[in-house]
Amino acid sequence: MNAFQWIVLPILVLLVVERLVTLLRGSGSRRVALFWGLVWCCAAVAIAWPDLTTSIASGLGLRRGADLVMYFAILFSFVGFYMIYVRMRRLDANLTLLVRKLAIENPMTSGEMSKQRDDEM
């Protein structure tokens, strides 16, 4: 094993254990725990056996295993950005509904308007 593997593999093992503990405790989403557990396992396997990624890469018509990892990382990032953006838009829409409900249920009274005027003077 090289120095990089000595440093990174224990960290990845710790992350997998942390996800397992989360799964066993039943705290948090099971789907999310499984997803991240799988991601850390794949990373650990790719780092522990670099030749494996190279052989998969050549099977897919790529030269190096590192290229395969990089392409997947980029793809993964874009999917992640998209999912985060969609979720943000959904939160934004819900926030608007809440703000609207409050505004319609509480039209401003003349007292509140005078108070606003006094506050801003």
Binding site: A103, N106, P107, M108, S110, M113, S114, R117
Partner: peptide, 17 residues
Amino acid sequence: QSAAISGRAGAKVLRHA
């Protein structure tokens, strides 16, 4: 003071927080 001015001008005022 958009809300206060609108109210003084006779509009019904709804306010987004």
